[in-house]
Write a protein that binds this DNA or RNA. Structure first.
Lengths: 195, 195
DNA sequence: ACTTCGTTGCACACTGGTGTGCAATCTACT
DNA sequence: AGTAGATTGCACACCAGTGTGCAACGAAGT
């Protein structure tokens, strides 16, 4: 029923992913629809972006709270999180870009819950001497998942290679020793399947 | 003689740093000058941005080639580089934002030499088993100095604290063990002066 | 006083994007 | 056939930013 609306949302994620400054017209034609139609579903550009963001936040918080409840060590939890989020990270990478710029304020607000969950996780890791403590949890968590999205963006994201690279790199940055990091990702069925 | 021109450049770095989408008008009034005057010095917005970038590239390549010639170990060289570049990193953080967006192509091209020098350094470190090898040198170097600028941006950059944090964090990400990383920055007179 | 040069203050044309209004059309369902 | 809802095709007003043209102004140096 809302098939057009959904298609617009999907396509918008792609188009904005390639160029965060793309206009409603670009999105419309990419969705095989006329500009006017897009405005029929989303009264303003901000509405579109906001909906997109809400979607992403919902998905991510769901994954995060679920994994967090498993009670595993912080670094293992982090690995699990990246593995689960990775398939959509590339699609949602636009959010990082959107956070600066016109709608920065709005996006930032919506992303709040995710930020909090991640900061809590990192703080837990720091408390257990699993993560490094040279930076406050709030900042370190931002940098770490910013890094993950940056890798997802950098076209080194071919297949599962990117996921492994992103996981290891972010773990290193969080202060996990290289040997432990490799052991952690090595444990994972996902990466075991690679080559 | 070119005192106005210089002031415009300085101020433009500030203004664009806070909002990469700021217009010529914003820059002009921030420089205490009329929009028309800015166009007198820089025929187009791109000219302004390009000049700014060239400035940054010149400074950075100078520092990098000088330090690189000292022949120290790759990780020590990296530490030295961050320490030397840090004072201006916050001012030049715009470049990272500017790299995406309208003039991305042009900026990216100008930044080429810096990218190469950094990639070479990281590659050298990887060859000597000083840096991790889970990612190609080109990408790893980009991520590492992107990280430095990100920290410079995140207002955790109060005083010399930020420099220390940025150095340690980037070293960790490059695969340097925490103990070694701390020893390296601990050696530096700059960070020794902190607290 | 005269000239030069940078600066100013308009006015202007142009572009590209946003958001709206409305009648016409198409499609699906009954 | 008839109706409802979504989609289309235009036209429009509007805004913000860019870049230009030109006459006037002001301070410096000669």
């Amino acid at each position: 029923m809302n098939e057009t609306r959904d298609r617009i949302l999907d396509v918008a994620l792609d188009v904005l992913g390639e160029n965060p400054d793309a206009g409603m017209g670009d999105i419309a034609s990419a969705a095989g629809v006329v500009r006017r139609t897009v405005y029929g579903h989303f009264p303003s550009r901000l509405d579109l972006v906001r909906t997109l963001t809400e979607r992403a936040v919902t998905e991510m918080t769901a994954v995060l709270t679920e994994i967090n409840a498993s009670g595993a060590e912080a670094d293992a939890t982090w690995v699990e999180f990246i593995a689960r989020v990775w398939p959509v990270a590339h699609r949602y990478r636009v959010l990082l870009a959107l956070r600066r710029g016109e709608y920065g304020e709005a996006i930032h607000g919506l992303l709040g819950p995710v930020d909090e969950l991640l900061a809590d996780l990192v703080e837990r890791g720091q408390g257990g001497d699993v993560f490094a403590q040279h930076l406050p949890a709030g900042i370190l968590s931002q940098l770490a998942y910013g890094l993950v999205f940056a890798i997802a963006d950098s076209e080194a994201s071919n297949g599962t290679r990117g996921a492994r690279a992103a996981t290891i790199t972010s773990l290193l940055m969080l202060g996990v020793p290289e040997a432990r990091a490799i052991a952690l990702v090595g444990d994972r069925p996902t990466s075991a399947a690679v080559q």
